[in-house]
Every structure is written in structure tokens, then in C-alpha cells.
């Protein structure tokens, strides 16, 4: 099964479970969790079911396209369901079956994993799902988001697309994976992997990035103060990505690091709170809709 077919299969599966199919969010981010479709929408009492593919940038994992397992940018398939359905484990296992993984011929395990993202003030409990010893999915019940208690609780499923594909296609090297008939990951992603790695580790303008961080941070704050939650959040994402670029270049010391993370977290907290307030002011529209 090609990556493209995998994505189509997962989309179909979760669409059938009444998830809204979304597209990737157009601001750089380190994980699908950071999309406002997850981070903001999982806050507050309104029901929310969504699935989308998220290209996720991890500058520190860039390896110039030379490492068989690590990428500057990989893809996550992200599912959020709020409130978490009682049969969510079964729904998830059915999605693996849809991908052609027969549980009777494999060893599928739910191994304890407590997820935490200090930058977003987010934490959850759940598992990493193992397929024959390989972690293929993060399965998390959100307990806290943006410093606020999650209520009702959302469940988040994050499939590592390349990981899963390397298993399904039985390849050792991520660049050998088939994206679609006749097109490999190498064809599409080798050049950007190499260039982004070179840029991140060697060529990026550190001074400019530091300036950008401060500018984005200020803009996020002033925008938030004007009650414009979504634009403010975009600037938080930009802060986060800029920080990741600086961190990968090794120009942020350990103490400074904690300071930067705290600055982003404070913004994320402020925006989370503002988001819930704004939704409340609007009368939680999706809650009403469900009642109809």
C-alpha cells in the first residue's frame, strides 16, 4: 500500500466515523497537535471530531537526507474526537485493519506513555501503540491544554505516517518508501530534506531569527490583547518554529531554553483562555448545533 493509499484509507475510515476531514494547517509547526484544529478546538465544551494530515517540522531531526529514520519534516495523521468515544480503541484498531494489518498475525500492544508538551502547557495520558515492537501511534487522552483542564476530554490519535509505511511496505529506509505508484519519498522530499538541513544547521541567519522571535512574540501578545485569538495563535506557532530553528542550531543555552519555552507557554495559555472566553461569548455555537 502506498503512502497515498494509506492516507486515503485513513481519511475514509475516520470520515465514516463522522470526523470532519481537514487539510494541513498553513503555518509551520512541530506536530499535528499544534494545529489550531487540535489545540484550540479541543478546549471548551463543544463537541469536535476532526481528522487531517499534518506535515510536521522538527528542525533538530534534520539529517541532510542521510539518515534512514530521521527527517526534518515527517507526516502525521491526526485524529481528534471530543468527547472521547467509549469504543475509541476499537475504532482505532479497525483503522489498522483497514490498512491491511490483521491483528491476529501481528502483536499489537498499548504501552503506557504519558505525553507532555511544556511549550503548549499541554499534557495527556495514554499509550504508544506498538505494532510488532514498533511505535506506530500516540494514543492520548488530553487532560490539560494551554494550562486549562480538558473537559470534556478529547482523545488524540497521532499516526506516524512514515513509520507505519516503513512497516507496511517493509522498507528499511524512509527514502525508499513509495508515496504513490512510481514516486518515492526520495523523489519528493530528498532535496528539501537536504536543503532545510543545510539551512537549519549552517546557513540560517541567527540574528534575524532572534529578531523574528521577538517580533512574533510581540505581535502574538498585542493581537491576543485585541481578542483576535486565531491570528494571535498563528504568531505563537511562528514563535515556536523560530525557536526550534534556533535551538537546532545550538545557539540557545539550556537556561535560555527554559526561558523561551516559558515565553511561548505563557502566550499559549493566554490564547487558550481567550479562545474559551470568545466561544462562550458566542454561546458555544457547536454545542447548540448538536442539540438540534
Amino acid at each position: 500500500m502506498t503512502i497515498q493509499e494509506m492516507i486515503l484509507t485513513l481519511q475514509k475510515h475516520w470520515s465514516d466515523q463522522n470526523c470532519i476531514l481537514m487539510q494541513a494547517y498553513d503555518v509551520e509547526k512541530g506536530a499535528g497537535t499544534m494545529s489550531p484544529m487540535t489545540l484550540l478546538r479541543s478546549l471548551g465544551p463543544e463537541p469536535w471530531n476532526v481528522a487531517y494530515v499534518e506535515p510536521s517540522r522538527r528542525p533538530a531531526d534534520g539529517r541532510y537526507g542521510q539518515n534512514p529514520n530521521r527527517l526534518y519534516q515527517h507526516h502525521q495523521f491526526q485524529v481528534i474526537m471530543k468527547p472521547s468515544p467509549d469504543n475509541i480503541q476499537e475504532l482505532y484498531l479497525d483503522s489498522l485493519k483497514a490498512l491491511g494489518i490483521n491483528p491476529l498475525e501481528h502483536d499489537i500492544r498499548f504501552v503506557e506513555d504519558n505525553w507532555e508538551n511544556p511549550t503548549l502547557g499541554a499534557a495527556g495520558l495514554g499509550w504508544e501503540v506498538w505494532l510488532d515492537g514498533m511505535e506506530i501511534t500516540q494514543f492520548t487522552y488530553f487532560q490539560q491544554i494551554g494550562g486549562l483542564e480538558a473537559n470534556p476530554v478529547s482523545v488524540e490519535l497521532t499516526y506516524g505516517i512514515e513509520r507505519l509505511a516503513s512497516y507496511i511496505q517493509d522498507r528499511e529506509n524512509v527514502f525508499d518508501l513509495e508515496w504513490t505508484n512510481g514516486v518515492s519519498v526520495n523523489d519528493v522530499f530528498f532535496q528539501p530534506e537536504y536543503e532545510h538541513s543545510k539551512y537549519t544547521f549552517e546557513e540560517s541567519d541567527t540574528d534575524m531569527l532572534f529578531q523574528l522571535f521577538t517580533m512574533y512574540e510581540n505581535e502574538a501578545r498585542t493581537t491576543m490583547e485585541k481578542g483576535l485569538v486565531f491570528p494571535a495563535y498563528d504568531y505563537v506557532l511562528k514563535c515556536s518554529h523560530t525557536f526550534n530553528l534556533l535551538d537546532a542550531k545550538g545557539v540557545i543555552s539550556v537556561t535560555e531554553r527554559t526561558g523561551y519555552i516559558a515565553r511561548i507557554r505563557n502566550l499559549a495559555r493566554g490564547i487558550s483562555k481567550a479562545y474559551v472566553e470568545e466561544r462562550e461569548r458566542l454561546g458555544f455555537p457547536m454545542l447548540k448545533k448538536e442539540a438540534e
Partner: peptide, 8 residues
């Protein structure tokens, strides 16, 4: 050792 909530 660690507790969680789910759904509602």
C-alpha cells in the same frame, strides 16, 4: 500512581 479522566 497516576489518574486520568475520559469523555465527560
Amino acid at each position: 500512581p497516576k489518574n486520568m479522566r475520559w469523555a465527560e
